[in-house]
């Protein structure tokens, strides 16, 4: 990629040897613009997930509800509902796994594209400016995408270990969402970790949401000014929503009470 200084006439620079046609995705993904498309599309999937996840979690605040002849935490019912989607067309839990595969696939692509673009960009300026740059518009969010992204991925691993697999939660009970969340976030360092990670996520989304419109070529003078507002909105929504949980747990607003629910619900698979 680096340009060397060759002297001599320039000619025939646009004459390309005929190349074999590659499959569409491989061909498209091979350029930086293609990779940015992949970043943007997988980013949209991620944003959709993050917002959906946050809204689902708001059920924490509904506390205990009566269902049939028992009483249960609303969020636990919601957890079970996710596994029931499209039953009986699909067996129990399969739809959730499909969604998980989509998310995993999107994450892998997002990471790979980010990694290869970072490598490309490092190579594009092997010798750095020797004095500090005076950035005009590049903001903290846009310049720290790589770091906020790494924080979010590491947090994601912890989050899964904590609340999905339970490895990082000594008092984990599968399916008892309310209880697990309370026990986990009652630990002050964990609560702080969640808040920090979600702020990083918010910063990542603030640039990501705006940026994906550019990458996908969604530009129109009529709505371009709304792209910034939308980015601010998404980032605020996610940060406020997600950070409210550790704060609520620490403040005692969310407090697991084993006596409030019927035992059958507790033992549900």
């Amino acid at each position: 990629m680096a340009q060397t200084l060759n002297r001599g006439p320039v000619s025939g620079t646009a004459v390309k040897p005929p190349s074999k046609k590659k499959p569409f995705f491989v061909d498209f993904y091979s350029t930086a613009v293609g990779k940015k498309y992949v970043m943007a599309i997988t980013g949209i999937i991620g944003i959709g997930f993050v917002i959906g996840h946050m809204i689902g979690n708001l059920k924490m605040y509904l506390g205990v509800v009566t269902e049939g002849d028992g009483r249960a935490y609303d969020i636990d019912i919601y957890g079970e509902f996710l596994r029931q989607i499209l039953v009986p067309i699909l067996p129990h839990g399969v739809f959730l796994w499909i969604m998980r595969f989509v998310l995993i696939g999107a994450l892998v692509l997002h990471l790979h594209a980010a990694y290869s673009l970072t490598v490309l960009n490092r190579k594009a300026r092997p010798v750095k400016y020797q004095t500090p740059r005076d950035y005009q518009v590049a903001n903290f969010a846009s310049r720290t995408m790589r770091w906020t992204g790494i924080i979010v991925v590491l947090f994601l691993a912890w989050h899964l270990a904590d609340l999905t697999w339970g490895w990082a939660n000594p008092d984990f009970v599968k399916g008892a969402v309310y209880r697990n969340l309370d026990t986990s976030l009652s630990r002050l360092p964990v609560a702080i970790l969640y808040i920090v990670a979600n702020i990083a996520l918010g910063i990542h989304l603030f640039h990501g949401t705006w940026s994906l419109f550019q990458s996908l070529g969604w530009s129109s003078p009529r709505f371009n000014q709304w792209r910034r507002y939308l980015a601010t909105g998404v980032a605020t929504l996610v940060v406020v929503g997600n950070c409210s949980f550790p704060i609520a747990v620490q403040a005692g607003i969310i407090d697991y009470n084993p006596d409030a629910v019927t035992a059958t619900q507790e033992a549900a698979p």
Binding site: Q3, A32, V33, L120, N121, A138, S142, R143, S211, S215
Partner: peptide, 11 residues
């Protein structure tokens, strides 16, 4: 072939 990628900084 020569340049880095756009990450929409706006600089």
């Amino acid at each position: 072939e020569y340049f880095g990628s756009c990450t929409n900084h706006g600089e």
